[in-house]
Simulated assay, not measured.
Amino acid sequence: MNIINDIKAQSTVELILLISAIVIVVMIMMNMYQNYIIDLGSEFSTDLDSLNEKFMQLDNHIKNL
Rank of each mutant, 00 (worst) to 15 (best):
N35Q: 14
N5C: 05
Q34E: 08
L18W: 07
M27D: 07
G41T: 05
I4A: 13
M29P: 02
S42G: 06
N52D: 10
Q57L: 12
I28K: 07
I22P: 01
M32R: 13
Y36W: 08
I38G: 03
I7P: 00
L40Q: 10
Q57N: 14
D59W: 06
D49Y: 01
Q57A: 15
K54Q: 15
Y33E: 10
H61P: 03
I3E: 08
L65G: 05
N52L: 15
I3F: 04
S42K: 15
F55W: 10
L15G: 01
M30E: 02
Y36M: 01
I28F: 05
I7T: 04
L15E: 01
I16Y: 00
L18D: 09
E53N: 15
A9G: 00
M1P: 09
I3C: 03
Q57C: 10
D47C: 12
L51Q: 07
L65Q: 04
I4K: 04
H61R: 14
N52C: 12
N31I: 15
N64A: 15
M30N: 07
N31G: 14
N64M: 14
V25N: 05
E14V: 01
I3L: 05
I37R: 13
V23I: 11
V23H: 09
T46P: 00
L65C: 12
K54L: 14
Q10T: 13
S11F: 11
D47N: 11
S50K: 06
Q57S: 15
S11L: 14
K8D: 07
L17I: 07
F44Q: 14
H61N: 11
S20K: 11
N35G: 09
I4E: 07
L51A: 08
N64Y: 00
F44A: 15
V23R: 06
S11A: 14
M56S: 13
D59P: 00
M1E: 04
M30D: 04
N60H: 02
L15R: 00
N2Q: 11
S45F: 08
E53S: 15
H61A: 15
Q57Y: 02
D39S: 05
M32I: 15
N60C: 02
V23L: 12
I19M: 07
S42Y: 10
D59I: 14
V13Q: 02
